[in-house]
C-alpha cells in the first residue's frame, strides 16, 4: 500500500481527509503512483501534472524520506520506504514567496 499526502487544496478538490492510500501495480515510481492517484481521483488530473505533456507543474514538488524527488525521472523507482508504505510520498505546493 502506497501512502500519499496531498496539499490542502488538492485534498479539498478530491474531497479526502488525511493521507490517501493506493494500490500500485508493478514498479513504484512517480508515474505509477500519480497514475493510480488520478485513476482514483480524476479531478486531480491536470493539477499535479500538465494535461498535455504529463510533466510536473512548475510549482508542485515531490518529497519523500526527507528528500526532494521533484527532479527525479518519472520512471525512476521511488525509495523502498515509500514502496513498502513505511514513508509517504508527499505532494507539496511549492513556496512562492510572500
Amino acid at each position: 500500500m502506497i501512502r500519499v499526502e496531498l496539499p490542502f487544496h488538492l485534498r479539498k478538490l478530491a474531497r479526502v481527509e488525511g493521507e490517501v492510500q493506493l494500490e500500485v501495480e508493478g514498479a513504484v515510481t512517480q508515474r505509477s503512483v500519480l497514475n493510480a492517484l488520478e485513476e482514483r481521483y480524476p479531478v486531480l488530473r491536470g493539477t499535479i501534472r500538465d494535461h498535455g505533456t504529463q510533466k510536473r507543474r512548475a510549482f508542485v514538488r515531490f518529497f519523500a524520506c526527507q528528500q526532494d524527488l521533484s527532479h527525479e525521472l518519472p520512471d525512476a523507482p521511488l525509495p523502498d520506504a515509500v514502496s513498502s508504505g513505511t514513508e509517504s510520498f508527499v505532494v507539496v505546493g511549492a513556496m512562492a514567496g510572500g
Partner: peptide
C-alpha cells in the same frame, strides 16, 4: 485557477 494547481 491556481498558479500551483492549474485550471478547474
Amino acid at each position: 485557477t491556481s498558479g500551483w494547481f492549474g485550471q478547474q
